[in-house]
Nucleic acid binder design. Structure first.
Lengths: 167, 167
DNA sequence: TATTGTTATACTCTATAACTATA
DNA sequence: TATAGTTATAGAGTATAACAATA
């Protein structure tokens, strides 16, 4: 959506913050802005890969989650917790995936309140295709060095633990 | 949106990927997933701070950009390029900010095609208030150590340069 | 009473295409 | 012809509140 800028806008912003009396928080502000921008770039790449397959990222996330489930089925509430999204977002995503024939709703055997979501054969095939495409075109060519990847994983793992993501 | 998980789901996914024949890309996949999740956490914090001020993040970004402009005014097209968003998104954001009285559209002195955006006094005051709140409640308490912040800035700067963000 | 999930509704942001006005 | 910006329209995800069914 445009040519490269002549200078790094985030480095500029950091200097600007320091000049305006925010020296204390200039560096973390810049780091957080860089995370936002990096996420934006990566999301665009992922969406470019998924679009030809008729998937959005959030729907792919749902399919990938189901493909990992040992029994092949997951309660809506568990999907909501694991994907960190609102229950209505799960309902919405499952509605569309079900219409497309990639998942099916089934009743929970013992708890009548619970709806289980299950991959269909089509859904499983599509998930495998999408995963292979993402691995080849995004994760396999991320541009991060191996060392940087490990540093990122440690730093972001510390952050997520501290943020209450896991124990 | 739920209690902490007992285990790190991203570390689990990395192991799972390795077990399913994707060992080559398991680490970058995990790192990218961690970036996505970190962005989600940070965005939620930022929105919590901005919501009481009646601002969304994208509208705050627009105000902050204008507050840095030397002349105090910026063409729509320049805002679109610097914020890396579609021109229609700029039109939308400026429409709402103008209705709220925080920015004004003015004509470019020499190019009749160009619309300039300018902060009002109210807009500048709100921007300063929002910036102070974000610095105090988000950037000043990010949870990243100083060393991690510098590592993040270097790694993500390399990535963004490679992705064509700047020269 | 509490929990699970759905529905209705609304509000973001984003994108495409068609259009006007100006260069 | 090309550029800047707007409009109309559509789609995505997310959220709140009210509700039904079940525990």
């Amino acid at each position: 959506m445009g040519a490269p800028l002549p200078r790094d806008p985030i480095a500029d912003a950091r200097r600007n913050w320091e000049l305006h009396g925010w020296g204390e928080v200039a560096a973390p502000m810049a780091a957080i802005t860089a995370i936002m921008r990096t996420q934006q770039i990566l999301m665009a790449r992922i969406e470019d890969v998924l679009k030809p397959l008729g998937l959005t990222f959030s729907r792919y996330e749902m399919l990938a989650l189901l493909s990992f489930a040992r029994t092949g089925a997951l309660p809506m509430s568990k999907a909501s917790a694991l994907l960190q999204v609102h229950p209505t977002s799960v309902t919405n995503a499952v509605d569309r995936l079900e219409t497309a024939g990639y998942v099916e709703r089934t009743r929970h055997p013992t708890d009548g309140r619970t709806t289980l979501i299950e991959l269909t054969a089509d859904g499983r095939a599509l998930t495998e295709k999408a995963t292979a495409a993402l691995n080849a075109e995004v994760f396999g060519r991320s541009g991060f060095t191996s060392v940087d990847v490990e540093d990122l994983l440690r730093i972001l793992s510390d952050f997520r633990r501290q943020a209450g993501d896991f124990a």
